[in-house]
Design a protein around this nucleic acid. Structure first.
Lengths: 154, 154
DNA sequence: CCAACATGCGTGACGTGTCAACCATTCCCG
DNA sequence: CGGGAATGGTTGACACGTCACGCATGTTGG
């Protein structure tokens, strides 16, 4: 109708949107299964461990880690609690600031990610980048950047 | 090194992968917030309700609904339990098959989705498709289809 | 100085998702 | 028929995520 204030998506957009939703739910699930099966780590564990290996001494303030991951502090706190139970990371007090806390990579955690990384990269390559020609990677990158611009108006 | 068995991603691939992860976590969160705020529905509630409005009488067998959504039966069962508590759907026995069950859209549920749909579509358009030129939509669609091919080898 | 306010982080409640185990019913084959 | 296997669905345990709140420490203005 001519006066419709909330136009639905056109056919192609609907198709793309459905595919987006499918990939968005199945790809993380597939990555998670691989990590879990081969390394007993979740995708989230992996993300946390990656950040920790990237910084000096594997020792970061909770807030900084949350920011680097793009997570809410609360989420990270819960997750660190679970990872702490499994010995992958530890908490340390902060001398400078009595409120602060560090998350520290344990030897167990470092060993875990070093064991897990190659297989994970292989899976990402095989499921995503091996399916895409360079030009497609480029196009995908453009589209993602455009959407990111809408999501993070900064 | 020349003998590396597990090549990392090249720079552009890494960048795209990071953006993919960011969009993949923030976009659903943003859509969820909008729906929750404006209509008191989650993204998953919405998906379920959409499927129910698509079929005759808003009445579907649990397995069929799970298949249509691409969900595991267990996940759907849990979700239906929660939606049932809020009066959005109801369960009904199946006369033909003593094991079977139907999920039925209630008047409350129908009203909820009819109220929610326009705003949700507007949000999807504004966050995703308004950011993309038609050619970019097309390119995104190609890339998603290629990845889907890897995820669902059929 | 000290009373408000701000900051850094943790916790509890609850919704969401997966896996494994569990009924009950139905199917199927000997 | 009758008894095992398959099917349809639920449940429990646990990991993950968000929100609202709480609590301690730190900061600041009167």
């Amino acid at each position: 109708m001519a006066t419709d204030q909330t136009p639905w998506l056109d056919d192609r957009q609907q198709q793309v949107w459905r595919d987006w939703l499918r990939v968005g739910s199945r790809l993380p699930a597939a990555l998670n299964r691989q990590l879990q099966r081969d390394s007993d780590l979740s995708l989230q564990d992996f993300d946390v461990l990656v950040q920790l290996t990237d910084v000096d001494e594997g020792r970061v303030r909770v807030s900084a880690l949350a920011a680097a991951l793009g997570w809410e502090r609360s989420r990270l706190s819960h997750h660190v609690t679970r990872m702490e139970r499994r010995g992958l990371v530890a908490r340390e007090e902060c001398d400078d600031d009595g409120r602060g806390a560090f998350v520290v990579l344990t030897p167990t955690g470092r060993a875990a990610i070093e064991r897990a990384a190659p297989g994970h990269v292989r899976t990402v390559r095989s499921l995503v980048f091996d399916a895409l020609a360079p030009a497609e990677v480029e196009a995908l990158g453009e589209a993602l950047a455009a959407v990111l611009g809408r999501l993070e108006p900064s």
